[in-house]
Design a protein around this nucleic acid. Structure first.
Lengths: 133, 133
DNA sequence: CAGGATCCAGTATGATACTG
DNA sequence: CAGTATCATACTGGATCCTG
């Protein structure tokens, strides 16, 4: 128990530091909503409620795991609701809450920015790669 | 070589499918700008150019690697510029391009949404966790 | 239909040490 | 000061099988 002094101190500082970061919930929330699947899911629900299977088809490329996981997270954050209808094959609908709807414009704006500026970005990339080579 | 029919067909479909997704650059761009460090860096540069070390202090918690990596990506995408000033200790300034500035309002909006609605989200989380327990 | 559980590969990220 | 290079790893995300 003597081979650690500076290293341990640094680790302790890091822990305290991480704790501080964890104490800043806004940054964590920012990280959570800065997620590909989140933006795609929220915009997918913009047109109204959708079933699980509809979403998986709309998003196209999302795995069961990511779809379920992201939906659970959004439900927990109060951004979407999950409604189960008992039937022969179970039916589950997801819909935006008012809180989720309030985030929608921003998500739409990001998506729109990406679609609008993709060409400019690609031009910049080509120029950058040219200069580098 | 007869133990695969449905499995192989599914794999082939998936490959074709993934190729299609890769061909959609807007989704890739959306994923790239939906990054924690990107939003933090762009908003950090909102007030004007900053040096590398200033940024690392402003962002607080970012590692050298992530900082450099994210800056390089943003530079390649044409969102920020990198200006090297030859001096005794080298000086490097980063600044937003017009393209980067055009993304700034959206990034600011996300950050603001997170800060505004963090409490509502936390309430929702507590309610969700209560119900689950 | 709508998941839950599990296994596994790839990537993202951090810590550390070294350099012009 | 402003990185680069390397190593180690934690976490993401996909594939697969199983269930109410």
């Amino acid at each position: 128990m003597a081979t650690r002094t500076a290293t341990q101190l640094r680790a302790e500082e890091r822990d305290r530091y991480d704790a501080y970061l964890a104490a800043c919930p806004a940054r964590k929330l920012l990280d959570r909503i800065s997620d590909k699947w989140v933006s795609l899911l929220l915009t997918a629900l913009a047109g109204g409620p959708q079933r699980y299977s509809e979403l998986s088809r709309t998003i196209a490329g999302v795995s069961q795991k990511m779809l379920t996981q992201t939906l659970r997270g959004l439900e927990r954050d109060g951004l979407v609701t999950r409604t189960v209808t008992a039937a022969v094959p179970v039916r589950v609908d997801y819909a935006l809450t008012p809180l989720g709807a309030s985030l929608l414009p921003v998500m739409t704006a990001i998506k729109a920015w990406a679609e609008t500026n993709i060409e400019a970005v690609e031009r910049a990339q080509r120029a950058y790669d040219q200069a580098g080579a």
